[in-house]
Simulated scan of single mutants.
Amino acid sequence: MTTKKSNWAKHLILASAVFALSSCGLPRTGPTKQELYAGSVQKNGNAFIVDVNDRVTRQTAVVPPLGFGPEFQNGGVVGSDTIRAGDTLGISIWENVEDGILTTAGAPATLEQVQVDGEGYIFIPYAGRVKAAGNSPEAIRRVITRKLAEQTPDPQVTVRRIAGDGATVTVTGSVSGQGVYPIERPTRTLNAMLARAGGVSIEPEIAKVKVIRGSKIGEIWFEDLFSNPQMNIALRGGDRILVEADPRTFTALGATGAQSRVGFASQTLSAVEAIAQVGGLSSGTADPTGVFVLRDETADIANAVLGRSDLTGTQRMIYVMNLTDTNGLFLARDFGIRDGDTVYVTEAPYTQWSKVLTALTGSLSTAGSIAALNQSLTE
Rank of each mutant, 00 (worst) to 15 (best):
M231E: 13
A245L: 03
G214R: 06
M317K: 08
I275F: 05
A38S: 03
G166A: 01
T366K: 03
M193L: 07
A274N: 04
I140G: 00
I318P: 04
V305S: 10
I49T: 03
I318H: 12
S365P: 00
Q267W: 09
S309R: 08
E205H: 06
I91R: 00
Y126F: 09
Q277I: 03
V293W: 09
V209A: 07
Q34E: 15
T60R: 04
T158N: 15
A265W: 12
T326G: 12
E98C: 06
G76R: 14
G128C: 00
A85P: 05
D154R: 13
M231D: 13
G179E: 06
T251C: 07
H11A: 06
G120P: 04
T326S: 12
N327V: 14
D287F: 14
A20C: 10
Q375V: 10
G290A: 14
N303G: 05
L357Y: 15
L21I: 05
E98P: 08
N74V: 03
T249I: 09
S176Q: 14
F335C: 02
V62Y: 15
Q34L: 12
I202S: 02
I217L: 09
L306F: 11
L373W: 13
D51Y: 10
I370M: 05
G118W: 10
L235Y: 11
A195E: 11
L148Q: 01
Q375M: 08
G173D: 12
T82R: 06
G75M: 12
P247Y: 04
L377Q: 14
E112W: 11
L373H: 09
T289N: 14
A105K: 13
T326V: 07
N74A: 07
G263M: 07
I144N: 00
G368W: 10
N374R: 02
D165L: 08
L26A: 05
